[in-house]
């Protein structure tokens, strides 16, 4: 997304808008808010484009992490969570990856989906609450009425198992 090149900027937005908007809707739930969040994500990406390092990975995960942060900013303001975490896990593990996504990302999504399905539900829920809702372990513990140590263990075991299944590519 080169600054000062309207054609490539438009092409970039067109290519990724469904992924960015889809993630925003998944997190904030309300379409009007999701549209604001998705727009904000593209503005932030444009602003931070100089900080994107192609060696760290593909554009889409980078752009989605920006979208996630913008969405979490929005739901923190509203102080509500549109989806119960169990519903969110079901949506994520059932979703079909877009056929237009690049091949590497389809493969990555498939592997992480299988890994998430294989997690014990309580670990998947803790990981999803942290990643998609931006909650700290303490906030998750308060929300679910669990000891803080239990939540920390679930996040640690859950993400470590995802990582083992995911077979992260080396730097």
């Amino acid at each position: 997304m080169a600054a000062g090149d309207p054609q490539s900027t438009a092409s970039f937005v067109r290519r990724f808008q469904a992924r960015v908007y889809g993630l925003a809707v998944s997190i904030v739930g309300v379409t009007a808010t999701a549209e604001d969040v998705a727009q904000e994500a593209f503005v932030r990406a444009w602003r931070y484009a100089g900080g994107y390092d192609p060696r760290r990975g593909a554009v889409l995960p980078w752009l989605l992490s920006i979208t996630r942060n913008a969405a979490i900013d929005a739901i923190r303001l509203r102080r509500d969570r549109p989806y119960e975490p169990e519903v969110m896990v079901a949506l994520l593990t059932a979703a079909e990856t877009a056929t237009t996504a690049p091949t590497d990302e389809v493969a990555d999504a498939d592997r992480i989906r299988v890994a998430l399905l294989e997690l014990p539900p309580e670990q998947a829920t803790a990981v999803v609450l942290a990643i998609f809702h931006g909650l700290t372990a303490k906030e998750i513990a308060g929300r679910q009425g669990l000891p803080l140590g239990t939540v920390k263990t679930r996040i640690r075991l859950g993400l470590s198992r995802l990582r083992d299944h995911f077979e992260v590519r080396d730097e």
């Binding site: 992924r19 992490s65 996630r68 979703a95 237009t100 990555d108 999504a109 990981v127 995911f166």
Partner: peptide
């Protein structure tokens, strides 16, 4: 990288 990959599961 793993945590970021979970974001790929959000539907388009």
């Amino acid at each position: 990288t793993t945590a970021d990959a979970v974001l790929l599961l959000a539907p388009s």
